[in-house]
Amino acid sequence: MAILTNPELWVLTVAMSVPIAYGALGGMFSERGGTVNIAIEGMMLTSAFFAVVFAHSTMNPWLGLLGGIVSSVLMAVLLYWAAVPLVADHVVVGMAVDLLALGLTGYLLVTMYGYNGTPINTPSLPTWHFPWLSGIPVIGPALAEQSVLAYLLIPVLLASWYLLFRTPWGLRLRSVGENPHIARSAGLSVRGLKLSGVLISGVLAGVAGAYLSIGVLNSFTADMSDGRGYIALAALIFGNWRPGGATLAALLFGFATALSIQLQGTAISHNLVLMLPYLLTVVAVAGIIGRTTPPASDGLPYREEEDF
């Protein structure tokens, strides 16, 4: 149990949870509008790469973040274009985006920087310090010193909740995700709303990706998102497609990941701990303990000619 009181575990938990939480919140905006988004992984990876490219070429990490977000949003546009106007299967297009991101970033990494990795003088985003928090036992260090993007998660979470549940736009987005035909008969622009949801998912997945490459590090390595986009999707589902739930699930899954890292070299298998997020998600979807319910039209094709 000494492992649970080790501050290192909690520092890692926050660091592991942040990208999962951004990814899950991003996925939420897409799926609440009815577009299944398994492309979070690919968007994250794309942003992680281009954040380094822009941070290095401008020597400004904030422009790096912006570049990463823009690249991720472009991937989101690709997802939207195929999934909504072209009525392609959301899951398959998401897989295409993931594969494309894996290939493009790996390919460009080699063609732009050779086999020695990204430049070592790439700037990274600032780390914030709150020394007065570090006195708290066990979790103090985890709260006192993190990347600026980790602290930014709190206002982003509140804004996500407010946007989704307290603004007309949020209500409209959710109605499109539940039943696009009724939404359209009420005069809403179904495609516009779906697009806005997918674009926000691109922005947030972009932040998650930049966090990986220039938030906690200052470099990009091939496939550095390493399945975090899929864990984010699991957190979104486990959190029942709600901002607070998704963030708590992200913390839980981040904790599992951190625990697995801390358990390396001990008698308990870290791999078995890593299975937990996925198994918990299956249990949640199956309704064995509580039940999660996706937006009713999530993933369904929307054709205007089928309006009633």
Binding site: A82, V92, V93, L100, G103, G106
Partner: peptide, 10 residues
């Protein structure tokens, strides 16, 4: 090759 595969899927 992954780029080509991704584009084919797309």
């Amino acid at each position: 090759s992954f780029v080509i595969q991704g584009l084919i899927v797309f």
